[in-house]
Design a protein around this nucleic acid. Structure first.
Lengths: 207, 207
DNA sequence: GGGCGCTCTAAGCGAGCGCTCACCTTCGGC
DNA sequence: GCCGAAGGTGAGCGCTCGCTTAGAGCGCCC
C-alpha cells in the first residue's frame, strides 16, 4: 500500500497540504478526471461524483472549476521545481547532478503521471494571470537545468554547442514522459529514470 | 508567401487532397481551432465562423465534429509516416538515415505545428474504432525509427543497450516539439531539426 | 440546551452546446 | 426557360454545462 509513493521521492501522502479533507478529496478527484479526459471534457458533476459528493459541494471549497486546475497546477509545479532544485544543489560533479536531476524528474513524471499530465498539458486552460504565475515557475525550472549544464560546460565535463537548445530538449524529453508512460507498460518509473539519465548524459557529451 | 511551405518538405498547398473547397476550408479552420483551444473546447460554431460559414454548413460535409478530428488525424499521421519512411528507406549509413529522419520529422512538427498538435495531442478525443486505426499508424511510425536504430546497432555504428527504450525516447523528443515550438521564438524549424539530429546521434552513440 | 457556524444537498437557472430541419439559392444540361 | 442536384442559411430542438440558492443536518461553545 506504500510502494507507489516511493517513486515520487519519499512523499508519503500526496496533496497532504490541502485541507480540509473534503477539499483534498475533490482535488484528487479533479486530478484523476483532468488527466483522463482533459480539463474541458471534465464536468463538475464528474469531479463531485468521484469524490462522493453532490455537484454543489465543489463550490463550498473552490470558487470555480478553474480554481481547482490552478491549485493543482501550482502545487504540482512547486513539487517539480523542488525536485530539480534538490538535485541541482547537491554536491557532486555536474554529470552526477544532471543524472540525478533527470532521473528524479522522470521518476516523478512517470510515477505521478496523472498529476504531471494535468500540470504539463492543461496550462492553456488557465486564465491569463494564473497562466502567468505558472509560466514564471516554468522559467525557474528551465533555469535550474540550464545552470547544471552551464556548470558542466565550464568545468569541461560537457561538450555542448547550444546550451539553451539542449536545455530545452532535455526538459522536453522528461516532460513528454507524462504523455506516453503507463503503469501497465513494461517499464517501472525507476527504469525509465535510469535510461533517460544515461541518454541525457550522452546528449551533453559526458560519456 | 511560399517560405513556410518549404519547411514541411516541399508541400506547396497542404490539405490539397481534401475536396470540395468548402470542406477543405472547414477542415483548415478546425485544425487551427483544435490546435489553439483543444478539441473539447472548440465549438462547431467557432469552426464554421472561421471558415466564413453558418454552423449548419459543417454538417453538409462532415457527419459530426469527431469526423473532422478523425480526418485531420488520419491525414496528419499519413504525412508523418510518409516523412519517416522516405528517410528510413533512402540509401546511406544508419547515422545518415537517422539524422535525416529526425531532422525532417522535427521540421514537420515545428513548421506544421498546428497540425502536429492536433495529431499528437487530441488522440484521446477519438472514439474507439477511430483511435484503434490511428494507434496502428503510430506503431508503424515506431517501427520505422526502431528499424534504423537496429540497423545501426547491427553495423556497429551505434552503441545502444535498450533499443526499444531509445526509440521511444527519440520519438518522444521529436513529438514534443509540437508542444513548445512557436514561430515567434528564436529558432527556425530547420535549426531545431539540425540541433535535434545532432542530439539524437549522440543518444545512440554515433559520435 | 439553544443558537451558531460549517458542511453538504436537492432543485434548478440561464447559457451555450452539437446537431437538425425546412427552406432558399445557384447553376449546368436539355 | 425549366428542372433537379448540390451547397448553403436561419431558426431552433433537446440536452448538458458551470454555477447558485434555500434550506437541512450536525457538532460545539457559552
Amino acid at each position: 500500500m506504500s510502494t507507489a509513493e516511493e517513486t515520487t521521492g519519499g512523499e508519503v501522502e500526496p496533496w497532504e497540504e490541502v485541507t480540509p479533507d473534503a477539499a483534498r478529496r475533490l482535488l484528487v478527484a479533479a486530478v484523476e478526471a483532468f488527466a483522463e479526459r482533459g480539463y474541458h471534457a471534465t464536468t463538475t458533476r464528474d469531479i463531485a461524483g468521484r469524490a462522493g459528493m453532490s455537484p454543489a459541494a465543489l463550490y463550498i471549497h473552490y470558487k470555480t472549476k478553474e480554481e481547482l486546475l490552478h491549485r493543482i497546477s501550482r502545487i504540482g509545479h512547486d513539487k517539480a521545481l523542488d525536485i530539480l532544485r534538490t538535485a541541482a544543489r547537491r554536491e557532486g560533479t555536474a554529470a552526477e547532478r544532471l543524472a540525478d536531476a533527470v532521473s528524479s524528474f522522470v521518476r516523478w513524471h512517470a510515477g505521478r503521471r496523472t498529476t504531471a499530465r494535468v500540470v504539463q498539458y492543461e496550462l492553456e486552460a488557465l486564465g491569463p494571470e494564473a497562466r502567468a504565475e505558472i509560466v514564471a515557475l516554468r522559467r525557474q525550472v528551465d533555469a535550474e537545468v540550464r545552470g547544471i549544464i552551464e556548470d558542466g560546460v565550464a568545468s569541461g565535463e560537457f561538450d555542448v554547442l547550444d546550451v539553451k537548445g539542449t536545455t530545452l530538449a532535455v526538459l522536453s524529453l522528461c516532460i513528454d514522459v507524462a504523455r506516453w508512460f503507463t503503469l501497465d507498460g513494461p517499464r517501472t518509473p525507476e527504469e525509465v529514470g535510469a535510461l533517460y539519465a544515461d541518454l541525457v548524459l550522452r546528449m551533453v557529451g559526458a560519456q
